[in-house]
Design a protein around this nucleic acid. Structure first.
Lengths: 406, 406
DNA sequence: CAAACTTTTTAAATTTTTTAAAAAGACTTT
DNA sequence: AAAGTCTTTTTAAAAAATTTAAAAAGTTTG
């Protein structure tokens, strides 16, 4: 009897997950997505309606026959704590069942590198955030995106936030009493694009995360691809250049030595001191992040100087993308991450590099697009991460004190 | 009634496919592989025994309980025509239900490039081969591996064997009256490694096909990965070098300009004319293939000169493999293709390149192995290609005149 | 404007899976 | 060394899911 309920709960969780990612679905669509028959699906939906988790949200347009009845998640039925970390700043947001950010995005200073108390600080910030949530019983989990070599299955980050005993996820779950999921930041941006962005419904996509480094999230067969240890998509440090520039990783010629927002800002400063004309003002080596954002904004608004600086980097990234196209033959490459705030200026130089370095047949059906998710991609991806594991949350009842669906 | 039989046939085909790839399996193992329950699986097996397609082939060793009864395909129940093409030579073999080559491997001269009658020649060779098979009614299909940009789903090769109307597969099936499947040669070698070689049971493997170019077959999530158009794994022409050597593809600095059996043979000839010592004799620019084979054999037998020439190329391939490791984080890289005949001499220089160009953490769990399949890999892969599609063969009864299982 | 065509929804029949029990073999303990 | 315990496979009965067919609800076309 316990097992039957358990199995049913798993199916309910599956329905809930699909409704989260699609907002509203008909019973036929849900039947196809879950692989269950229509009678079983309808029965499951009726149970969820009885529990108040789901409601009938209207009719879809007919495609030539009877209008299908649509189902959606009940308002306020589900909350997710989304966390997006970079080397210096940690952002936190509360996300609801419609994938909307509820309230304000909080920003905290939290240094990841060489910081023995980073885990303690993170726990403190999260405990405080969770304590202020109005309906804490609706929170299904915490999703965290972070830089570094993250093994999300094991729940470990090999670059930062290292624990003495047990995994990082265990350390967080023990303190926060909520299911916690971690993932590499670029992978989460790719997940955000897959579920809510330009990669929606696509099978084979490369998502380039242009930030302080250059990240890559790989969508293969319609799913995030992570490789054997969970580290797939290391793009910053493939050796592409013969430039003798020492990289932070200790090698020479990495992609990162020629392209990243840091490189772009540094180049701009150098050119400005050489007297080139631009609308940019007050760029400083000490405030590289601020400078980079100014350049992205100026490029978006048409500043020739900024566009040229970005174009140089874009061409180099294009060389890297050419390799991706040869190896993985994607249907789509998305320029995402903070760099995407500059808009379409990235596309032309990337396309030129592809034309020069790809066999035409290989690149024939590969589109290049700029992300429309903006800076919130990482937070949205962290929420998606939690919902990807929604069935798992409902199996591992150990993980949480309450049964989510009962 | 017809539909029921149809669906049953599909299940029988699935059982047959799994038995082909595993030689002998217990009902429990087959139940897990097919995703059907044990009662249904046992019932299906008993039907196949009744039809004479399957027999009880003994008991497996116990793992702590009752010995499981094993099932195997009946001897002589199934034949596959395997074809392995390169730019100049086409090999054909007949393969049985145990994945054994029956009779002789036939070799035919068939030029692929700039040959308008290539398809006609191929059809003639295949018709002749099929006409000489003792039990033609047991042949389930023809699998063909060939160089070029092959879209195996559409049944088209965009580089060679181009048809005027209809696809290549249609052209062949219309003449040969058997189901035909085509695939890129490197992909087929990867498939052979996955089903019968060093990649058996692995999920995430890169198979390097060292031949007249350098090919790549990608195993991802335990399956052959082909990308959006079917062209994934183009490894020869990623631009890696700053060498100003013009490649056959029209670009500069491709991997192929520094490594392939052709480059190795040419380098050896150049060094020999410069007076370096070796056991090698009579190498000629006009017989590059023969020369390359001599070098591989000599290297295997310890000739210092040959090992050095190969090592240089191996290091360059290692640079390419470093990029694969960064991007796809494989658990295993297999050196396969004709080049693997030289044996383990490839490993050390590849490993050195990985040490120099990979972030240690990325390559930590990546093994490098030499293929043990030898030259027959391509033929074995072509047979595997047919059997991968065995259910499909049994659905598309249009494709063949007879019902395979009845 | 009614007939023909689509598609969703509901209901009954069949099939499949699940569950439990029995059978067969291997390991452990006295 | 033998009996009992533990695994695992196999068989048989109960439960659940899918398949199939029919009905209901809309659209489109002649």
């Amino acid at each position: 009897m316990a097992l039957i309920t358990h199995k049913k709960n798993l199916f309910y969780a599956q329905l809930t997950r699909h409704l989260f990612f699609h907002n509203h679905l008909s019973s036929t669509e849900l039947s196809e997505l879950t692989g269950k028959s229509i009678p079983v699906t309808t029965q499951g939906l009726n149970e969820l309606i009885k529990k108040g988790k789901v409601f009938e949200s209207g009719f879809a347009e007919s495609t030539g026959g009877r209008k299908p009845l649509l189902y959606s998640l009940t308002e306020g039925s589900l909350l997710i704590v989304s966390v997006a970390m970079d080397q210096l700043i940690t952002k936190i947001a509360l996300i609801n069942e419609k994938n909307e950010i509820v309230g304000e995005i909080e920003k905290h200073n939290l240094k990841l590198a060489d910081n023995p108390s980073s885990i303690a600080e993170l726990i403190k910030i999260l405990k405080n955030f969770v304590s202020r949530i109005n309906k804490p019983d609706k929170v299904v989990g915490i999703g965290i995106g972070m830089p570094g070599f993250v093994d999300s299955l094991k729940g470990v980050n090999y670059s930062f936030l290292q624990t003495e005993n047990g995994t990082l996820v265990e350390a967080l779950e023990n303190e926060l009493h909520l299911p916690v999921f971690i993932e590499n930041d670029s992978s989460l941006i790719a997940l955000a694009e897959l579920r809510w962005g330009a990669a929606y419904g696509r099978k084979n996509v490369m998502v380039i995360n242009i930030g302080w480094g250059v990240g890559l999230g790989i969508i293969s067969k319609g799913e995030l691809f992570k490789g054997h240890d969970g580290f797939a998509g290391e793009f910053s440090h493939i050796s592409l250049f013969d430039n003798q520039k020492l990289c932070s990783c200790g090698k020479y010629g990495c992609l990162e030595t020629e392209t990243s927002l840091v490189v772009i800002a540094q180049k701009a400063i150098k050119k400005m001191t050489e007297g080139e004309l631009t609308v940019l003002k007050n760029l400083s080596e000490n405030r590289i992040e601020e400078g980079a954002r100014k350049i992205l904004k100026a490029a978006k608004e048409g500043d020739k100087f900024s566009i040229e600086v970005i174009s140089e980097s874009a061409y180099h990234i294009g060389r890297g993308i050419s390799i991706l196209i040869h190896l993985l033959n994607p249907e789509l490459v998305i320029i995402s991450g903070i760099g995407s705030l500059a808009g379409k200026v990235w596309i032309a130089p990337v396309q030129i590099a592809i034309n020069e370095h790809c066999i035409p047949k290989m690149a024939e059906h590969t589109e290049i697009k700029i992300s429309k998710l903006g800076e919130e991609a990482a937070l949205i991806g962290a929420a998606a991460l939690v919902m990807e594991h929604f069935e798992e949350i409902n199996i591992n009842l150990k993980k949480i004190e309450k049964v989510l669906i009962n």
